[in-house]
Design a protein around this nucleic acid. Sequence first.
DNA 1: TAGACGTGGGG
DNA 2: TCCCCAAGTCT
Length: 338
Amino acid sequence: MPRRTGPRARAAGVRPDPYRVWLSEIMLQQTTVAAVKSYFTAFTERWPTVTAPASARDEDVMAAWAGLGYYARARNLLKCARVVAGDYGGQFPQDHATLLTLPGVGRYTAAAVAAIAFDDPQVVVDGNVERVMARLHDEHTPLPQAKPLLTDYAAALTPPTRPGDYAQAVMDLGATICTPKRPACGLCPRRAPCAAWAAGTMAELPKKAPKKRKPTRHGIAYLARRVDGAWLLERRPDKGLLGGMLGWPGSDWGEDPAEAPPIRAEWRALGEEARHTFTHFHLRLTVKTALVPMERAPDRGDFIEAPDFSPADLPTVMRKAFDLAQGALEQAALGWSA
DNA sequence: TAGACGTGGGG
DNA sequence: TCCCCAAGTCT
């Protein structure tokens, strides 16, 4: 993965594979290197070139993305791979403006791919770069208002040569030394010209608009296990939260959700709720389980045979519900509860 | 354009 | 146990 191996891992002048650069930048959006690493390895081993995910089944790619979050990235990854495979002969466009037209590729990613994969000196501005620029210039204007100014600062520093190495270097600096909290200024190669260091304000920059509190929503998830071990699951619609992902059929998520069992059964609620926090709300999920006979047909969802089901294919909130149910089953089997 | 959109780790 | 935070894009 380019960002982790770093510029020094490559011989000067050798351009990294645009597909791998694009894939890693998509995965790294709002996500740490540590979280991305195993996913990047799994993706590139299974789908080594952009034509591979382009011809993959949606469900396989969504399952491989499960747990990484922001699932619109995976849906757009599929769209983008198919555009590149279909409209560009399997070769990523090199032009920044054309990159920007690809699904899931915004200003940051287009600039990063152009700079890192194609040696084009585009101005790469992510959260790390914003922080580094705010500190170098002791800029106290809060984000996102300060973004244009910080981009100007970044542009003034972007070199005409080796822009990819430069971009990765600044982002690495932000990730490892010029960190959000307790920056390691003693190790910083740009301490001398840093205005925030001179002013002693580095730890409070960049300023940001205050965050809003998250409301708590409630919901019910229904985990039906057929006597042969199959599980009742449902593919979520492409739009919206967890779009395109597999999940347990459930109620709406809100103040006081109504029952919405997907199949007739004797439902029993677990003693403990599954708790999960999304970007903009907390969720407390009541988990209900039932054992259903072979011949009974569900009103919603489809039974997936036990060998075809892996909880790793589920988004985290759904996997938490599964883990709770499993734990309850094991406790019951061991006679720990009635 | 502000809000929607995940998750895991640190305090 | 929470609360807060972090490597964007789309609508």
